[in-house]
Write a protein that binds this DNA or RNA. Sequence first.
DNA 1: GCATCGGGAGAACGATCGTTCTCCCGGCCG
DNA 2: CGGCCGGGAGAACGATCGTTCTCCCGATGC
Lengths: 186, 186
Amino acid sequence: MLDAETAELKVLDTAERLFGARGIQAVGMDAIRSASGVSLKRLYQLFPSKDLLVEAVLRRRDEAVRSSLTAHGARTAEGPYERALAVFDWLADWFAEPGFRGCAFINGFGELGGVSPAVAAISRDHKEALRAYFAEQTDALGAPPVLADQLSLLANGAMAVAGITGSPEPAAQAKAAARVLLDTVR
Amino acid sequence: MLDAETAELKVLDTAERLFGARGIQAVGMDAIRSASGVSLKRLYQLFPSKDLLVEAVLRRRDEAVRSSLTAHGARTAEGPYERALAVFDWLADWFAEPGFRGCAFINGFGELGGVSPAVAAISRDHKEALRAYFAEQTDALGAPPVLADQLSLLANGAMAVAGITGSPEPAAQAKAAARVLLDTVR
DNA sequence: GCATCGGGAGAACGATCGTTCTCCCGGCCG
DNA sequence: CGGCCGGGAGAACGATCGTTCTCCCGATGC
């Protein structure tokens, strides 16, 4: 048997992967059970309902994206200009992952945002965090606040189009556009 | 009783509205029946399965968007530069509609793209059509081909963010960014 | 060794949903 | 006028799914 921590990790990993591949409602609790090897009983001890599991998956993904984004910025870029652009390299890596099918929050909002206030709120907060990350960089550059919104639109557009088309190209295209916008305040 | 044409129209209108508000899988055939006033029997005569109804709704929406977009461009803008920018005014009108909850194709792809090749293909074609519309304008300006992709990223990012945040602001922000990009080839 | 407790496997239950069927009515044709 | 056809209302059916329950086993403590 697995300890609670390991089981929770396996469930969250499995659910995130299956939700990403097929969508949320197309994945039954039984599929998560089979793929994770965690029994239904334990699954419901860890997450008392599918709704709560969905929210936990999204919340963990939110944290992971925020960490990964700032870590990548700190690792690869040296100033706010470079860190803003580095977001698009981070996107490129993400889009190239096998099975990439778009942003969990854009997809989750589209599927459940209309019936689940929790999913809608998590998605909104997540997108606001991305905008805030851009705003940190653009503020440091003394750029007008709208620039952060615009960079966020490019990033989200790249996620949506890369997901739908299956091509990683949008990351590079968005990066080039972002450079043009950033250069107006240099 | 309604003639077949009127019934089909009511069903497609109702389904499009409910799918947009709640997502596709959250809307049962019975809800479409109640809201449209078209009996289940007739509904299944017109659309032999829910999958086919979903595809019909998306295909009709695809046509409507394409027509609306080119009509708006022809009506309000005089040259390729203006027509490219006019797309974002068209987005602003759309985002301001009550109940707006994002793009049917971004949302539909997120929900069903992983399990329905038909939905995935329709979404891909639709996004390609938007890109092609931008490409018509940028080609006429003698701009490099990537500009059309970048304008399409801005438009799609605006749709995603406007849907999630519920604000129409992204249209104006994207328009301003698009103007910057377009001005680099003037 | 034995009772107890927690967990695994999966059956069972109740709800929902896509789809079909039954029953009935109203209009149309002879 | 009487039989037939198409359609409306909604019950019925079968599948799926979220959730719970049953049964059994293995470990653990005295």
